[in-house]
Design a protein around this nucleic acid. Structure first.
Length: 648
RNA sequence: GUCAGGGUAGCUCAGCUGGUUAGAGCACUGGUCUCAUAAGCCGGGGGUCGGGGGUUCAAGUCCCCCCUCUGACACCA
């Protein structure tokens, strides 16, 4: 059976970061693993290039949209090429074949009755330029982000009958426990689906940078909306709906995604496939995020790590090894130079690299670099058996995407090798005139390294090619079958004097993560919000008086108070701040005050707080209160003051 | 708040259906070989298995309560 492995297509709204590299490394390793095993394997990656955001970004950069997309897409492709990612196809959603494939799919869904035309009613916030579903609005009318009122915009749209597939999806999850890996993520998806699926708006008329509807629809106002367009890439890349298609690779064996887009891949995507009468992928693998030195990476923190920067300093293969070894699949991982260097030194340099050096040295002294496996079985049956055990356990780890366990297990081979050298001490055997035994041990280690190199080759293709070259063989399927599957030993060969593969690293090779890059940070925050000054002064803990007065504090008279149903903490208050209308403030003080006891009393109110939505209700301010282990009390004026009196 | 999954050596974690003195890697430390990249190998210290109850001949492993962390939803002053 053939194998098909995909990464997500990356959105061309920015350059590749370490997360993109991670996904790509895992997928690449998996593809190489399958290819090593002789599987007919197809590996897809690419870029997602449609949508309003791209249109806007292009405009900001004063470039034609297509040119803009071309340029960013090329940065991804170039990086993958530099990293020698072995993709079979790099798809772009602006490819003609892709567009035609999506249109074809749309027609099939249409014919099936899964697409219908209706109106997309969105609540549009002009200021935020965003649509919000009614459920997210504050008091059913206000923008959840900025609190301004929204307009109802009614836009003609085609809808996909996602709701129709709810039961079929749940059934599929239940029957295929490996459909979503890691399994802990599957529960989240299942719960979401159980919560009910709404039909999906799959076209837009508000922008044009997307795939047009098929001509048969005679409706060229519409373009396909993000997910239909993007998700379909996995089959259009195989030529879905086109001549000369390679759909025999479908269904995919593994589709890697970041945990943030799991929902689209585990719900929308299989529903689309069901509608197209195509089989579902075997596994959707959702990986976690990377932090840096324990902190989230973000542009504003200035601690984003570029894969290029790391590979320039440490080498791509070391980075691949580290990322796949360090973190269990699905979990978040942390990148720190300390951890990275530790792994390079102790695992790559000491365990692996040094082991190779040991036999180069010995064979040079004992046998003029000639290594012959003829006596290995005779003297090292024990080690050979242990090695076979390790090799047999590896497949399962890779198949369940547990690369860290795979590598951990694989490393046991080097331990067997290092221990064998110690136990049999070839230098002693040589003095005892037992050259046969000494050379058998050297040959044993050569075989260990050869087999390990084969199994490590998916993760470190170039390095293991050097090891193979040193040991007089090549990394390929024939040798995989002979040495790993059939347990054969290396034919006699002359070992090459290869310089150390992994020089130890004593000092970090990159500048440390900017703990605080104050300048950039300030500038960036300042641009966005005047509040920036608060952050700037965080270090001293002291603020200017002016900053204090940015907070508008006022005396408020509580006119009404009522408990919020189904809420443990919230009271809904109407507070007079001396304005035309009383403010509605939702406060988390239910545990400490009864509504009756509050009416008519006064409290201090933050009057210029961004409105927030609590329990679906607008809260237009905040009451000041003090809370300790004994409970909470409101901060109130000592004597009654006119409502709206400023506090300062 | 609801749901899910965690809390086990300094760190990262493994411990399946309850059963001998609770494990691994890293880190630390003592010893030792010399083929080797100050690498390797052998040994050691170090754990109230989040807390409290309970079931049992026997619980890290099952039940209840509490604390705490993470994630997804949902109302986070």
């Amino acid at each position: 059976m053939s194998k098909y492995i995909t990464t997500p297509i990356y959105y061309v709204n920015g350059e590749a970061h370490i997360g993109h590299a991670y996904t790509t490394f895992i997928a690449d390793s998996m593809a190489r693993y399958e290819k090593l095993k002789g599987e007919d394997t197809y590996f897809l990656t690419g870029t997602d290039e449609h949508g309003q955001k791209i249109e806007e970004s292009a405009q900001k950069n004063n470039k034609p949209t297509q040119q803009f997309a071309d340029e960013i897409s090329a940065t991804f492709k170039n990086l993958w090429d530099e990293f020698e990612i072995c993709y079979d196809k790099f798809i772009r959603t602006t490819d003609e074949e892709h567009k035609r494939g999506v249109q074809k799919a749309f027609e099939v869904m249409m014919a099936k009755g899964d697409i219908y035309k209706d109106f997309y009613e969105g609540h549009y916030c002009v200021s935020c330029e965003t649509f919000f579903p009614e459920t997210q609005l504050i008091d059913g009318a206000f923008c959840p982000d900025c609190g301004r009122s929204t307009n109802v915009v009614k836009e003609e749209s085609y809808f996909f009958r996602l709701s129709k597939y709810q039961d079929a999806l749940l059934k599929h999850y239940a029957e295929n426990p490996d459909f979503i890996l890691p399994r802990s993520r599957a529960n989240e998806v299942i719960n979401f689906v159980k919560g009910g699926l709404r039909d999906l708006s799959v076209t837009r008329t508000s922008f044009t940078w997307g795939v047009k509807l098929p001509e048969s629809m005679h409706d060229d106002k519409h373009v396909m909306y993000v997910w239909l367009d993007a998700l379909m890439n996995y089959v259009t890349a195989l030529g879905y709906g086109q001549e000369g298609e390679k759909m025999s690779y479908w269904p995919a064996s593994v589709q890697f995604v970041g945990k943030d887009i799991l929902r689209f891949h585990a719900i929308y995507w299989p529903a689309f496939l069901m509608s197209l009468d195509l089989p579902l992928p075997k596994t959707i693998g959702a990986h976690g995020w990377w932090t840096r030195d324990g902190e989230k990476m973000s542009k504003s923190k200035g601690n984003v790590i570029s894969p290029k920067e790391v590979s320039d300093a440490y080498g791509v293969e070391n980075l691949r090894y580290f990322m796949l070894r360090e973190v269990p699949f699905g979990q978040d991982g942390d990148f720190s130079q300390r951890a990275f260097i530790d792994r390079i030194n102790s695992e790559l340099s000491n365990d692996l690299g040094n082991l190779l050096n040991r036999i180069i040295g010995m064979s040079g002294k004992y046998s003029d670099f000639l290594i012959d496996s003829k006596d290995v079985e005779r003297y090292h049956a024990k080690e050979l058996a242990a090695m076979a055990g390790v090799l047999a356990s590896l497949d399962e780890y890779m198949e369940t995407l547990q690369t860290h366990r795979y590598l951990e297990e694989l490393w046991k081979l080097f331990s067997i090798g290092n221990k064998a050298i110690e136990e049999y001490a070839p230098w002693v055997k040589m003095k005892e005139n037992k050259a046969d035994e000494a050379l058998a041990t050297v040959a044993l280690v050569a075989n260990i390294l050869a087999k390990a190199a084969l199994m490590l080759s998916p993760i470190m293709p170039k390095t293991t090619a050097v090891i193979a070259d040193t040991l007089g063989f090549a990394i390929d399927n024939a040798n995989y079958r002979a040495l790993v599957r059939e347990g054969k030993l290396l034919a006699p060969f002359t070992i090459k004097k290869t310089p150390p593969l992994f020089p130890r690293i004593e000092e970090p090779l990159m500048a440390e993560a900017p703990a605080a890059k104050p300048n950039e940070k300030e500038i960036e925050v300042k641009k966005e919000k005047p509040k920036a000054q608060e952050k700037k002064e965080e270090t001293t803990g002291l603020i200017e008086i002016g900053q204090f007065f940015e907070t508008s504090l006022k005396v408020g008279t509580i006119l009404e108070a009522e408990a919020v149903e189904k809420s443990a903490k919230l009271l809904r208050l109407q507070v007079d701040l001396g304005e035309a209308k009383p403010r509605q403030i939702v406060a988390g003080i239910k545990e400490f005050y009864t509504p009756e006891s509050l009416v008519g009393t006064q409290a201090c109110v933050v009057a210029n707080l961004k409105p927030a939505k609590l329990m679906g209700m607008l809260s237009e301010g905040m009451l000041l209160a003090a809370k300790d282990e004994d409970g909470l009390c409101l901060v109130r004026p000592e004597k009654p003051k006119k409502a709206g009196t400023p506090i300062g």
